[in-house]
Amino acid sequence: MVDLEKLRTVAKETVSRDDVKYLIGWRQGTYGFRVSPHFMKEPEEAEKLIFSPLCSNNLATYLTSVEKLPVPRGEEPDTRKVALMVKGCDSRAVVQQIVEQGIKREDVIIIGCPCDGIVDLNKVKEKFPNVLELVQARWNNGNVVFQLPEGEKEVPREEVLADKCLTCRYPNPVEADVMLWEEVKTRGSDEYADIKEMEVKDVQEKKSYWQDKFSTCIRCYSCRNVCPMCYCEDCILDRLNPNWIFRSVNATENMAFHLTRAFHLAGRCIECGECERVCPVDIPLMKLNRKLYKETREIFDYEPGLDLESKPLLASYRPDDQEDFIL
């Protein structure tokens, strides 16, 4: 399945092009199961690139969050293309960014890596605690094989993959300039079981669940920072004029913060799950984002990040949109 040879060859070729600024991929991290993003500028660095079940980062966020520093007088900005390695979910982020004109299709070279699921580090660390030596991993028939210091260990996918991967319906990049290896079969189908479970709870239960979760939020803004769809120059969550959300870290402001972000992602969130992954206090953010995703699918029959020609959900309407709750 994963062809590292091909990956590195393609990376080398791409970076050697005159019109490519750099290639963003993954390389091994500094310890344990960690993987880091890598900004490759020289063809020689290709050897560092990897693709394994440990590559959880959604690199699409670097396309839009790159800081546009003021251009010194007499110089021209570097507008060359950026090459990007994407898994299925990541490619949807790129498509949605293009739909929203955050980037132009011709400014990015999408290198598709069909993916059989990446791990949830919390689950992995529970299974294999205290591993500091560098670990490699690969897929085998949908399961994950870890190359630990003591030898190879194969773990069934249900035990170690991120929840989002177990219900993933788009493991293959939906848009790519080059697909590095053959597509994987879609193993997941999302029934939103966890969302439905929450929906049927009574008001008090829901209230206390979310109040409990959001009260632990430390307002580190990691979720907003890592999200590929959060790239406004002056984010509404930061704004002082008008001051929508106060900077105080308390139940009501935290609630407003997360509700605002979730609402702003309505029809835009492509379920990459990065927000939940990076949250230092393990708030189940996907439980909220996926609820809106489910409603978008069921009520409006719309999924973001699939079609380059689609219109954003809340910037369009149908004359027959439902209105059963309107008096």
């Binding site: 004109q101 954003p312 809340l314 910037a315």
Partner: peptide, 21 residues
Amino acid sequence: ESTCRGCGFCVEICPYGAVDL
């Protein structure tokens, strides 16, 4: 224009086509 990110939602939404990029 210093904070606008050019996503074009307003362009899509305007019933009169009054906004352009």
